[in-house]
Design a protein around this nucleic acid. Structure first.
Lengths: 233, 233
DNA sequence: TAGTGGTCTAGACCACCTT
DNA sequence: AGGTGGTCTAGACCACTAA
């Protein structure tokens, strides 16, 4: 029997969690009101509220005004992925980081992105191909489009010192974005760059970010063979 | 100029966000104490605390007792992935769902999982191969190991009606787990099952869950060609 | 050791929604 | 229409930690 501090919101959360896990409160079932729980635990309603709010954020209970709080029927698995700047990811593994800009030019927006980049279609965008290294071994291959309306200063930068990713984070913060993950087969170009063999399955990520209505950048990252994205749930 | 209600914690959050985006507070810079901000906004410190706590959760500021609150230098991209039960994912796309159990037997725990499943090494585990369909087209191929110590009732279930995933969510809730994503090449078996061509890159997910110390299940899902996992940030 | 964020309280009002 | 969660207040004490 573990003692739990039922005056702290985390303690109360543990107790509630246990009741859900032990099926004292069945999936779909209505649980007592905040006021009742507060009385039971001898604490303020605010404290119970904090605990329940936390459970609701993780998807374990569903709260509705007037309808009360129910144990979720199919608690969705929510996983929080932290997508670091590649330099930090590499360095946090104790490896040395380096990147190399393979290509840099202005070009028309590729048709693929017309939907996302609805602004400034007539304007050229800055296109970059970059290879990221971990301990001098290829780590990821990056293709990026930068909207120069959103980041005019980028026009004069080579991105040899600081990576475009890092520069943009500091100089053109985004408000929201789309992110997707998928698998691609290595073509011959990728093979040479990433030390892969032709056709090998590679993990890829694509991201588009905006600042309000203004598109900032599109980036497609393809990781070297063996890459796994991990998280805890 | 947008008016913002600075008496609500969300309103205050917006104002603080704007100051960070507009670099009124530079990355790495210390921002005013909760008490000062509360005075500025004419609200209780609790309300400012709520706003700052939210910004800290999303990684935009870093809070430390005694040291104060700083704007994050490299705000990590945090993305919350919602990994639904496959049936719900398929049905939410307006497609019909069906699954088929291809194989079901007891076997010794594969060596690959010895590290994760430290309990009951002598015990056999239930092994399942399942194919999930969306509108009668293959959607994902699943290989699963179930620890019968954690879910004894699974021994007598065929999982033809309810999928193992769904059954486990209801009957053996987990407390935590590991999740990873990667890419695999389709081998000949996978090709036949998933309508892929040999060697095609497929998106894969692996998950191990525990209830406290007790491992519950290991599952490896390989999705049909073209699958993308998406989220917003 | 002093200053900062973290938390708790008791009370209040309100928005929302199910019945 | 009434009950529930959402939020705000003013004040207090505490835990942590940087200096």
């Amino acid at each position: 029997m573990t003692l739990t501090d039922t005056n702290s919101w985390t303690g109360i959360r543990e107790v509630l969690l246990r009741r859900i896990h032990n099926r004292i409160w069945q999936p779909g079932e209505l649980i007592p009101h905040e006021a009742d729980l507060a009385e039971e635990f001898g604490c303020a309603r605010t404290t119970v509220n904090r605990a329940l709010r936390d459970l609701a954020e993780s998807g374990l209970v569903i709260r509705k005004r007037r309808a009360g709080t129910r144990v979720a029927i199919n608690p969705p698995q929510r996983a929080t992925l932290t997508i670091p700047i590649i330099r930090e990811e590499v360095e946090s593994l104790g490896r040395s980081y380096r990147h190399s800009v393979l290509e840099r030019n202005l070009r028309a927006l590729p048709p693929m992105l017309h939907g996302a980049f609805q602004v400034s279609l007539s304007e050229d965008v800055l296109f970059l191909k970059t290879l990221h290294f971990s301990d001098e071994r290829p780590y990821a291959f990056e293709e990026r489009h930068i909207n120069l309306d959103a980041a005019p200063d980028a026009r004069d930068l080579a991105f040899n010192e600081i990576s475009a990713n890092e520069w943009l984070v500091h100089n053109a913060p985004y408000t929201h974005g789309d992110l997707s993950f998928f698998a691609v087969n290595a073509d011959e170009t990728l093979c040479r760059k990433l030390d892969a063999t032709t056709g090998m399955a590679l993990f890829a990520m694509e991201r588009i970010t905006w600042a309000g209505e203004m598109p900032i950048t599109h980036v497609r990252l393809i990781f070297a063979p063996g890459y796994r994205m991990r998280t805890e749930i």
